[in-house]
Amino acid sequence: MSDASLHASESGTGEAGFGDYFALLKPRVMSLVVFTAFVGLLAAPVPVHPVVGFAAILFIAVGGGASGALNMWWDADIDRVMKRTQSRPIPAGKVSEGEAFGFGITLAVMSVIMLALAANLMAAAILAFTIFFYVVIYSMWLKRWTPQNIVIGGAAGAFPPMIGWAVATGGISVESVLMFALIFMWTPPHFWALALFMKSDYENAGVPMLTVTHGRKSTRKHILVYTLLLVPVALAVGVTSIGGPIYMAVAVLLNLAFLKGAWDIWRRDEEAAQSDQYRTEKRVFALSLLYLFGHFLAILAEAMLGRFGLGGW
């Protein structure tokens, strides 16, 4: 330790607390990762020892967090420009870019190795691919190149239930692929609904967003098209072994509501949206959160009831 590191003012960065390192892991994103991986694990037909399950979910969460830290390392230049991200640990001067990279890469490698030891190689391989996909394919390549960034990049957030399923079964099946597809198809309409009402400065940061490159009318059309593609995926989950009457009832209701929301967004023009301060767009965004949570909660309910001989078809 050098003398300089004794004094925060001389160390080049502010003094990072434990919370700053935790913030690098993007805890809000991590909560979605934990929840969907947990559902994937419990919905699988093979029981998992509670300690093994807990450890596996923890390592999946750490792996997701590691990709968040590596994303913040790579996007530090953008984060400094955009108001929304200026308080993140790197732009705020709490953590240096090198520290974030070291922290992220260490946790990424550790989480993959530990998941392989705690669960199996298949789960660890999917986790490693998820981290690679989010950091290299999405952050480094797609994000600054194409307005479809969120569509393909959304895959990174869709892998956790597949990993949870693989922890239990050691493999991939139609159910886990459909859970992946559900989040994958849900991400674009969810994000674009937000993009319509959030005053974002992505443009200043040089990130091509659909609302800017193709216009807001085109974004509204995209939301409707992707919602139409999402519906059959959501309903298809219901006819597999992880579905059942509860899931189907929830799926039908939520999909009707989401379709209605997407239709309303498509029919509106910018003038109408501005006049009521994007009420419909905000409502659909809130509904999209309930949509994903509701579907996975219904899968969980079917799995729990299945333990008592109830649930399922």
Binding site: V52, A55, L117
Partner: peptide, 22 residues
């Protein structure tokens, strides 16, 4: 930071022990 790191490392050791037993 030191307290947080200590607790994380302690938790990690406990987790590995629990995993081994399981």
């Amino acid at each position: 930071r030191n307290l947080g790191l200590g607790l994380v490392l302690g938790g990690f050791v406990a987790l590995i022990f629990g995993l081994t037993i399981a």
